[in-house]
């Protein structure tokens, strides 16, 4: 599903239950372990924590994360 909203390039997050997350407009992958995925978004860092976390698939705009999701944390990107 591709959202064509007025917020072009703004991060967009869809959550299905606690097992599937779709993130739109990501920039890069910062970290990947079996209990955490950290993704760089525009001005923020999204942390998806849980168990058996894996990246199901990626496209140029979207990333699909699967697993038992226990927390989603959005942090402001620290200025370098």
């Amino acid at each position: 599903m591709q959202h064509t909203s007025i917020w072009q390039n703004e991060p967009l997050l869809d959550l299905e239950g606690n097992h599937f997350v779709r993130l739109e407009n990501y920039q890069s992958i910062l970290e990947l372990t079996d209990c955490l995925v950290r993704l760089k978004m525009k001005g923020y860092v999204y942390e998806i924590g849980g168990q058996n976390i894996q990246i199901r698939s990626v496209t140029k705009r979207e990333i699909f994360v699967e697993g038992i999701i226990e927390q989603i944390v959005i942090r402001k990107e620290e200025a370098k």
Partner: peptide
């Protein structure tokens, strides 16, 4: 992983082990 994405290599089922 970021370099793969930057070069247009769309991977699947990436799992830490």
């Amino acid at each position: 992983l970021s370099l793969l994405l930057a070069r247009g290599i769309m991977f699947q089922e990436a799992k830490y082990e």
